[in-house]
Design a protein around this nucleic acid. Sequence first.
RNA 1: CGGGGUGUAGCUCAGCCUGGUAGAGCGCUAGCUUUGGGAGCUAGAAGCCGGAGGUUCGAAUCCUCUCGCCCCGACCA
Length: 433
Amino acid sequence: MRLSAYFLPTLKETPAEAQIASHRLMLRAGMIRQSAAGIYSWLPLGLRVLDKVADIVREEQDRAGAQEILMPTIQPAEVWKESGRYDDYGKEMLRIKDRHDREMLYGPTNEELVTVLFRDAVKSYKALPQILYHIQWKFRDEVRPRFGVMRGREFLMKDAYSFDLDPAAARRSYNRMFMAYMRTYARMGLKAIPMKADTGPIGGDLSHEFHVLAETGESEVFVHKDFINMDWSQRDIDYSSDLQPMVDELTGKYAVTDEKRDLEHEKTLGDNLVSARGIEVGHIFYFGTKYSKAMNAVVNSPNGDVTVEMGSYGIGVSRLVGALIEAYHDDAGIKWPEAVAPFRVGLISLKKGDAACDEACEKLYKAFGREVLYDDRDERAGVKFADMDLIGLPWQMVVGPKGVAAGVVELKNRMTGEKSELSFEEALKRFAE
RNA sequence: CGGGGUGUAGCUCAGCCUGGUAGAGCGCUAGCUUUGGGAGCUAGAAGCCGGAGGUUCGAAUCCUCUCGCCCCGACCA
């Protein structure tokens, strides 16, 4: 992409409404613009990141055996009345009426819809297990939206739902999702600690939240020191094997959210206890028959009718974009991990109009394909460097007349700040598509 | 939902106390000079001062009501 033609409205000054780094930087880097409190438009640069995050989530869900569907944002109130949650959910649910005066709502989550989908289609135990997921916009009318996309009212979420014949099988589905989450976060370069969590209004008795530690995190969490130095590299997982030992290992050490604190146990930890703040980037639940019973999701089996065991598994996709920035930024701007960077490399022409410089840039630009953002604007070097640092592409390739004359270009690593010189030929190959 | 704050040019803000017809910096447009880390000079464009009522000869400024947005707290992917 050529920056001269790209819709990238960067801001030199910090918008007054943004308090935390990720919100500030997303506005300044031209990733998002606010439409109303807690509701945002995603601009091209931000959307590229959102899509990359969603793609990683999608790949890991598929790998774990989940199947993607797409349920609507607007749901009939009817199904929520069936589960009994229509009255429970309160003002967080955005309720609307259609032209026929029928009660509708903008979905805050999808347990009801997916249960209807399942129960109407599946009648035999032989079809189990099933894990269905979708990546869809949700709306929760938070009293106080804040922190940009980290706590918006409208947000993109991956939610998966498992259907099993008995609790043991449901536990296997839970474990699959658990490990899929570990892989998902690791691929993005995030250290997300699984914590014993409260089940809240969704109900059930087995639940974990995944938290990225950050000073700006909204929740207070308490973890064993060993998590801080854990090996966070991606794990190879055979999803057909018994995952329980791996899950046990990951949940063996103390890690809890505020509501689940065990003060007695904490006393035994001594110096090994770390109190920190966390950004919740995922939450998984096993809730048994809470919805299947109320909504009559039953399959036939040799032993007669069985009410299916269910679990649900959420990842805040849009929130992850904010969490990533909280984890990876400095005073100059964002420092994207390569897996989620909007572009892999930024090509900076230091002197537009210089024939040799232009020619070198054009060659590099064409060779790099879709993962290059080429700053071909007629701007001063300082402006280009500042914008490139701000938007945080992992690599900056700097092409200037002096370098071109000497047959070299400069390569800067945004994460480490390291700079090196490459011959033009090396440079051509370095990011070739 | 309680408490606090704030709406003036695209952005950051001054002006409001003490009413007299709209300002700065950045950004934007044009020209000249500059050109390896957010340039300089010149000339411009740009605001129903959030909205509605009121007081007044006259309101960004005073009063009333309203709406938006932000922050602190209680609640949540």
